[in-house]
């Protein structure tokens, strides 16, 4: 039974992957945009810490350039997601097509997300290598296997948190169908850009702000995994970080379950 279920979602992922490959220009353009976005951050920090001996906000040149190259990688894993389309499906009444099928809608999108991440990741490796060869940045290679293991684990939880976050945001459309893109813009574009660590490492902010931000779910998408990779977390910070991260995973899952059930009660399949 479990095997059959796994096979079903594997097929969803496979079909989704084929669908993305069928429109290669869209995908390539999306990747080009990702490279351009990273260039601003990269050159900004490169200019600020041009001297290899200089330390700024607790970061040496190799640490900060590793952080920025790390953003490329973690972004492709965590923030490349197709679940944003859920808002449109609910608003247009297309959710009905899935409600009558023997599929779990959340796992359906999670499978599509994983397929998308595999594709993004394969491109990121090429981009990463090219930029690395062209720019030849100072780079910090983590050799501690525990840090690498914790890094991978935190990225995995980050993926789940982000997917839950997108689903919760999309749920707004049960009540306000026209608000889908607006809600995503505010929460998943603006706030994620500043509070996930995609633009800068959050520990450059004053301590008081950091304390508040660290209790939110967003820093666990990019900033926390990269801090683990760089070995900048003490054992206490590591444990506290994972406790908060897992707390948010559970809390968001429960909240989504609650809000989704409420949403389905008011869902009218408009447009169908």
């Amino acid at each position: 039974m479990v095997r059959l279920t796994m096979y079903k979602y594997f097929q969803v992922g496979k079909t989704s992957l084929k669908q993305e490959i069928a429109y290669p220009i869209n995908f390539v353009m999306w990747r080009v945009r990702n490279i351009i976005q990273i260039l601003l951050v990269l050159f900004l920090w490169d200019s600020l810490i041009s001297d290899p001996r200089k330390v700024l906000f607790g970061y040496s040149r190799d640490m900060i350039l590793t952080y920025i190259f790390g953003i490329m990688l973690v972004r492709a894993f965590v923030l490349s997601s197709k679940s944003m389309d859920v808002a449109g499906e609910v608003a247009r009444g297309e959710l009905s097509n899935y409600l009558i099928r023997p599929v779990n809608y959340f796992f359906y999108w999670l499978s599509r997300d994983f397929a998308s991440k595999v594709l993004n990741l394969s491109f990121v490796f090429v981009e990463f290598s090219l930029l690395f060869l062209i720019l030849r940045p100072d780079f910090f290679f983590q050799t501690n296997i525990f840090y690498i293991g914790f890094f991978i684990f935190s990225v995995f939880i980050g993926i789940l948190i982000y997917t839950l976050f997108l689903f919760i945001t999309s749920s707004v459309t049960f009540w306000m169908p026209e608000m889908g893109w607006g809600a995503h813009f505010l929460l998943n574009v603006v706030l994620v850009e500043f509070l996930s660590g995609v633009l800068f490492p959050l520990d450059i902010l004053p301590q008081a702000i950091q304390k508040v931000i660290n209790f939110l779910p967003l820093p666990y998408l990019v900033y926390f995994p990269l801090q683990i990779y760089l070995g900048k977390q003490s054992t206490y910070e590591l444990v506290r970080g994972f406790v908060v991260e897992i707390f948010w995973l559970g809390a968001l899952a429960l909240f989504l379950n609650f809000i989704w059930k409420k949403g389905l009660k008011v869902y009218e399949s408009q447009g169908r």
Binding site: E178, M179, G182, F185, L186, V190
Partner: peptide, 11 residues
């Protein structure tokens, strides 16, 4: 669509 206007403006 005042709500949408408000949300994009705030964003």
């Amino acid at each position: 669509q005042k709500k949408i206007l408000a949300i994009f403006l705030i964003g």
